[in-house]
């Protein structure tokens, strides 16, 4: 599973905002270009991004396995024709190139995931998105991180309790609605207790934000982000 891992790589030392900017710039230009020449350049950039984050290619591919299936299937499907010639090679190639650039975009974002703790992302959101939306999204990301394991436990308990009483023999609609209903009801109970605690702890629109500061290594990265974004238009 792809997730943050503590390390000393160059990517780990970069400011999260610089890393986000590069990803956005890269995605913008990759979505705009699918020529083989452009893809070679993108591949080189992707390799650099992965190396700076010390990302393992094999493990990253495994974590994107669902996307890989679709990306591999798409060119095949694109090539198939209902009548002769039965396989349209140029359509397949076009789709293959397009699929490949999507893979590169995924790999570049994996470098961010491995090198950035949730705390830093939260700080980046709160410092970049202005006003109340930024504050709610930032605190919200922290809350999702916090409650993810709690709700995983809830869902597992609900499923086990159903299985223990042979709920697995019931119809699929019945099972799906039971899990969904109990899951949401329990989630709302937890949320209502959480909201009380948030109020008691003076949940404010203008808190002291987590510390973040650009350092010298961040500026070339920001420059690269700008070049990438601009190249999307050429």
């Amino acid at each position: 599973m792809l997730t943050y891992e503590p390390d000393e790589s160059l990517a780990h030392r970069l400011d999260p905002r610089a890393k986000l900017a590069v990803q956005i710039g890269f995605a913008a230009t990759a979505l705009a270009h699918t020529t083989p020449r452009a893809l070679i350049a993108f591949s080189a950039l992707t390799a650099v991004a992965m190396a700076t984050a010390r990302l393992s290619l094999r493990r990253t591919l495994v974590s994107y396995r669902l996307a890989l299936v679709v990306l591999a299937l798409a060119p095949l499907l694109a090539g198939v024709t209902v009548g002769p010639p039965w396989f349209d090679r140029s359509a397949a190639v076009a789709s293959g190139l397009a699929s490949y650039r999507v893979l590169l975009i995924l790999l570049v974002s994996a470098a961010y995931v491995r090198s950035t703790p949730v705390r830093d992302s939260r700080a980046a959101i709160q410092r970049t998105i202005p006003g109340k939306p930024g504050q709610l999204l930032g605190v919200g990301v922290g809350l999702v991180f916090r409650f993810l394991p709690v709700l995983r436990g809830d869902l597992r308990t609900i499923r086990e309790a159903m299985a223990a009483r042979l709920g697995t023999e019931r119809g699929v609609v019945d099972r799906a609605s039971t899990i969904g209903m109990l899951g949401v009801a329990r989630a709302f109970d937890r949320a209502d207790r959480l909201s009380l605690a948030l109020r008691a702890r003076c949940f404010a629109w203008n808190p002291t934000l987590p510390a973040l500061a650009f350092s010298r290594v961040d500026y070339p990265v920001l420059g690269l982000a700008v070049i990438l974004a601009v190249s999307a238009f050429y």
Partner: peptide
């Protein structure tokens, strides 16, 4: 300062 039942549901960070 207030501390509620069910500490699990009062935490805002991981």
């Amino acid at each position: 300062g207030m501390v509620f039942q069910h500490p699990r549901d009062q935490f805002v960070a991981a």
